[in-house]
Simulated scan of single mutants.
Amino acid sequence: MAGRIVRWGVALGLGALWWWAVLRLAVGRGSGVLEAAFVAGGWGLSLLPVHCVPKARATGAVPEGRWGAAWRAGEVTRASPHPRSGEVSDPS
């Protein structure tokens, strides 16, 4: 329980500092490199993929070897058993 409170406190504190830096950059005349670096760092952290799952469990994930087979075949349609609209499938 104490660990959760500490994590939330740190997250809220850093969030408040980040918003302070954003507002200081947007409104204040005395802002500088420190605020800009803090804002850019916080924004960069928001781009981290925190909702990742293993490829085997991902919805719509391409199976292993599909792209390699398409590359070796020379075109994507040969790697798929289903031809695209208007194409004739290879009888061989």
Results as ranks from 00 to 15, higher is better:
residue 1 M to V: 11
residue 1 M to L: 10
residue 1 M to E: 15
residue 2 A to C: 07
residue 3 G to V: 09
residue 3 G to E: 15
residue 4 R to V: 12
residue 5 I to W: 08
residue 5 I to K: 13
residue 5 I to M: 08
residue 6 V to T: 11
residue 7 R to A: 15
residue 7 R to H: 10
residue 7 R to V: 08
residue 9 G to A: 08
residue 11 A to T: 12
residue 12 L to N: 02
residue 13 G to C: 14
residue 13 G to F: 15
residue 15 G to P: 01
residue 15 G to V: 06
residue 17 L to Y: 09
residue 17 L to N: 11
residue 17 L to G: 12
residue 17 L to Q: 15
residue 18 W to F: 15
residue 18 W to K: 03
residue 19 W to P: 05
residue 20 W to D: 08
residue 21 A to E: 10
residue 22 V to Q: 13
residue 22 V to G: 05
residue 22 V to E: 11
residue 22 V to N: 05
residue 23 L to F: 06
residue 24 R to G: 05
residue 24 R to N: 13
residue 25 L to D: 00
residue 26 A to Q: 03
residue 26 A to Y: 00
residue 26 A to W: 01
residue 27 V to M: 05
residue 28 G to H: 03
residue 28 G to Y: 00
residue 29 R to E: 07
residue 31 S to R: 01
residue 33 V to C: 04
residue 34 L to N: 04
residue 34 L to G: 12
residue 34 L to D: 10
residue 35 E to W: 01
residue 36 A to H: 06
residue 37 A to F: 09
residue 38 F to V: 10
residue 38 F to Y: 11
residue 39 V to C: 04
residue 40 A to P: 00
residue 43 W to L: 15
residue 45 L to P: 00
residue 46 S to Q: 11
residue 47 L to S: 05
residue 47 L to P: 00
residue 48 L to Q: 09
residue 48 L to F: 07
residue 48 L to C: 13
residue 49 P to E: 14
residue 49 P to T: 04
residue 52 C to D: 12
residue 52 C to M: 10
residue 53 V to P: 01
residue 55 K to H: 14
residue 56 A to F: 11
residue 56 A to E: 13
residue 58 A to D: 08
residue 59 T to P: 06
residue 60 G to R: 11
residue 61 A to Y: 05
residue 63 P to Y: 02
residue 65 G to H: 01
residue 66 R to E: 14
residue 68 G to H: 05
residue 69 A to P: 00
residue 69 A to G: 02
residue 72 R to V: 09
residue 73 A to V: 04
residue 74 G to K: 05
residue 74 G to Y: 02
residue 76 V to E: 04
residue 76 V to N: 04
residue 78 R to F: 05
residue 79 A to I: 02
residue 81 P to Q: 13
residue 84 R to Y: 13
residue 85 S to A: 13
residue 86 G to D: 04
residue 86 G to P: 00
residue 86 G to E: 10
residue 87 E to W: 09
residue 87 E to K: 06
residue 88 V to Q: 11
residue 90 D to R: 15
residue 90 D to A: 11
residue 91 P to S: 13
residue 91 P to Q: 14
residue 92 S to W: 09
